[in-house]
Nucleic acid binder design. Structure first.
Length: 223
DNA sequence: AACTCGGGGCA
DNA sequence: TGCCCAGAGTT
């Protein structure tokens, strides 16, 4: 496991690599963000943005989503994977917002997680991006990068990864941190092809050094 | 902890 | 055409 100082160094480097790291989902208010993040599960942000661009012209409020037949909403988001379930969840979610939350998006993470289709990752993104509440949303990028670099243990569950990161990173940096780590994971420390050979963090990265050793052995064996 | 739910993008 | 993308809910 890396020390707090080493982790800080890593995060600073990620900030230099991705100075414009931010939430890529299109949204103009907390409600639109919530819808966009629910849609983004198991799906790329680019694809979600394509759909929400049209979607948000047609649907402005929770009432708008429950006013149409389920089949119509499903058709409107059809180009997204898992669209049948997501459409159902969104209608149920909107009904709950109207009934229990006065049509507003709750600012509390645990309240958000009671909504269908909203898990811990989604709830953390919403509170941090929409309401500026410090939170670290652990998606597959954050988890993979944390484990490779040694921010946490390999055996940590998603929840344990989040707890460990919160312990090791100053609270006021949680939100920017998860955006940096997501960009770093998506564009550099990729799942199948991490760019270890040009990585400024290689010296600190146990997994990266292991991979580079393996690569050297393979190229030597090939000769 | 393992499984299921999927269409879009790319090679 | 087949692989990669990337969470929530259930058992």
């Amino acid at each position: 496991m890396l020390t707090k100082q080493q982790i800080r160094y890593c995060l600073d480097k990620m900030g230099e690599m991705f100075p414009n790291a931010h939430c890529e989902l299109v949204h103009r208010n907390p409600f639109e963000l919530l819808i966009a993040v629910v849609l983004s599960a198991q799906c790329t942000d680019a694809l979600v943005n394509k759909v929400t661009k049209r979607l948000f012209e047609k649907y402005k409020t929770p009432e708008d989503y429950v006013a149409v037949p389920l089949e119509e909403l499903q058709q409107d988001i059809r180009s997204i994977g898992l669209y049948r379930n997501k459409a159902k969840n969104i209608q149920k979610l909107c009904a709950m917002l109207i009934e229990k939350y006065n049509g507003e998006v709750p600012k509390d993470r645990d309240e958000l997680m009671k909504l269908p289709g909203v898990g811990r990752k989604t709830a953390n993104v919403v509170v941090s991006v929409a309401f500026g509440i410090p939170a670290i949303a652990v998606d597959t990028h954050v988890e993979r990068v944390s484990k490779r670099l040694g921010f946490c243990r390999w055996s940590d569950s998603v929840l344990e990864v989040e707890k460990t990161l919160m312990k090791k990173i100053p609270k006021e940096e949680w939100s920017i941190t998860h955006h940096r780590m997501i960009f770093f994971g998506r564009y550099h420390c990729k799942a199948q092809s991490p760019q270890c050979h040009v990585c400024p963090l290689l010296d600190l990265c146990r997994e990266g050094k292991k991979r580079m050793r393996k690569r050297d052995e393979n190229s030597a064996g090939a000769k």
